[in-house]
Write a protein that binds this DNA or RNA. Structure first.
Lengths: 345, 345
DNA sequence: TATTAGCACTCGTTCCAAAAGAGTGCTAAC
DNA sequence: GTTAGCACTCTTTTGGAACGAGTGCTAATA
């Protein structure tokens, strides 16, 4: 961590970064002295820039070029200089109005959110749906499909629905299944999926249950049903926007981004990390651990349901993205999604 | 449609195309005369090539370059020259073995298929899941989630499952819902979704039903449930493979492909077209109507369930793909998927 | 002592012309 | 009908010159 800079250095760093974010090109001392209200000659600015370079906040692609902020430079900027813009009332209204009351299913909310984030940011919008394991069990429904084949439908309190087909050895009647589900709903209600799994094992070990045909069958079945890898629900929109950025006109970089998006696990893990924090989190360039994403920045924020974090959303764009605009968009969207989750479920 | 060529012309066209598919570069008369067993001097070959150019089967990027096959040239090749390779026993085994008996859900089959197609072809593998509208209704299940909120689960004969949350004005008990679903399952069984929709309207218009509370509620509810835009289930794998092809090292082309993949509607409509035919269908370059895909070829084949087409699968690659290898892979995969659909559902 | 003007220097970019290379079309001979 | 030979075309590569942007250093200045 770099210690605090003098006001003058900070102003110049600010100017370089602003100009770089605006033009995407290395910025020279002359430009700064002309365009920004810094009352110094190019020569003095050069001295300061040389200092900033020594500190690792700027760097020079080659001797006869201007300076470009390093990831550390941007980090300093984001942490200590950046003043985010406030959204206007209209903007807030527009965001809120995207969520139609008729969209009751969580998938609709996810899709709308990713679209919204991408539209407002002009980059890629992503949202990670609530993790199934953390969800609170609301009910299980068992439907006999055909012989030895049962459909289990889980519903979580937050409205996520998951289907799973189970193959059984013995043929069970629909009436058996009704009884099973009534029993399961009773013992599993209000547990998280994680807890529910444990509970099932506990119950199976209780002696009295082992000898009750109904209970033991029901537990066995539910264990099969719960024993599933639910894929992570990642919603991405506006990937294409990213390619429009000048910095990705290089074929190799484009491939790299493309790969990161295809390999969804990368984005999922990245967003998972943002889950820890309890506010906006920014990953600048190489600050994230994924090679493929080293030319991107990610602005992410968790969203909540009843005050506990259940997922993350964010914007992915080039390193030189306009943080000043993007941060409040992500922030407000996360708050809106949280409010909607609370209101609907 | 070009009329038949002389054997000599055909041989030379074949040689040019083979060489072009192999190298990806314009091929000259000398190369042909040396590498391929055509007993003619470069000069004679040049004459024939000039003829083929006049017919629109070859073209010359510039005067001092070799020839490249046009889309029409490749079409001629595919229709009249191409001899597809037979898959070996081992290859067939490998394909079949990818489908684990434990994967009962259609989504698993779709994912496995797209992955398989992309792995074997080294390009992008795609599969369009059975259209929900064409599916044969097996049953509907109605579950009360909370007040005024009902979960409807459809199951089709081919194992597709769809959930939908319905908001109702009046509060219905779970017992009402059991009765509704029993009634609906009775009247809608074995109809396609399309037919089921009609049937519901018919029933609603019957006078006797109008005055029966249970029936009229059940019908109203089911209409809401069916009135849904099910998004098309498109599964794509191996997009990245395509970018590795030399022809897409151009940034603009890469963007164009990227866009085509993001805008899923394009692929869906393209595959829909292949639904009509009853065997392998090949779209070469500009033969498909989508600007973004004009630098790609698509090899597609429908797959069936009980002898009627229910979906399409295929491979998307560069125009100069190795049709000889890709065609049998797509063909055999389609047959395998059809067999599995028949066996499982 | 901090700031600035001036200047030499570096390095990337653009431009141009020449040379090399690949392949053709045409013609005349076989 | 086929082919060898040759002139021609067009792209690609190469190298060098001119240009320009921006720097670092130094000496002069306030």
């Amino acid at each position: 961590m770099v210690e605090s800079l003098s006001e003058r250095s900070e102003n110049i760093l600010h100017a370089v970064i602003s100009e770089y974010i605006f033009t995407g090109e290395a910025v020279g001392s002359r430009t700064i002295s002309k365009k920004y209200s810094i009352d110094l000659s190019p020569a003095s600015i050069r001295n300061v820039m040389a200092d900033l370079e020594e500190l690792g906040l700027l760097n020079q692609p080659h001797t006869s070029a201007g300076r470009i902020p390093t990831d550390d430079g941007l980090r300093y900027y984001v942490d200590r200089i950046l003043q985010t813009r406030k959204l206007t009332k209209e903007e807030k209204e527009t965001i809120k109005s995207r969520y139609k009351p008729s969209n009751f299913e969580i998938i609709d909310i996810m899709e709308e959110t990713s679209r919204l984030l991408s539209m407002f940011s002009r980059y890629a919008g992503v949202i990670l749906a609530p993790k199934f394991e953390n969800m609170i069990f609301e009910r299980i429904e068992l439907v006999k499909l055909r012989e030895n084949q049962i459909l289990a439908v889980f519903v979580s309190k937050t409205g996520m629905i998951q289907n799973r087909i189970i193959i059984t050895e013995e043929d069970l009647s629909q009436d058996d299944l009704y009884q099973f589900s009534r029993y399961l709903n009773e013992i599993l209600g209000n547990l998280t999926l994680e807890e529910a799994k444990k509970k099932i094992i506990d119950e199976m070990n209780k002696e009295k249950n082992m000898y009750d045909w109904l209970l033991s069958r029901a537990l066995m079945l539910s264990q099969k049903a719960f024993n599933t890898d639910i894929e992570d629900g990642l919603f991405v929109d506006g990937k294409y926007n990213i390619l429009e950025c000048r910095e990705f006109c290089d074929v190799e970089k484009m491939k790299s981004i493309f790969r990161a998006f295809e390999e969804k696990g990368i984005l999922v893990r990245l967003l998972d990390q943002a889950m820890e924090s309890d506010g906006i989190q920014i990953f600048i360039g190489t600050e994230n651990e994924f090679q493929e994403m080293h030319d991107c920045s990610v602005v992410a924020s968790p969203y909540t349901w009843r005050d506990s974090t259940i997922g993350t959303l964010g914007v992915i764009g080039p390193i030189r993205m306009n943080y000043c605009d993007i941060v409040p968009i992500v922030d407000y969207t996360a708050k809106t999604v949280s409010r909607i989750m609370d209101a609907r479920y």
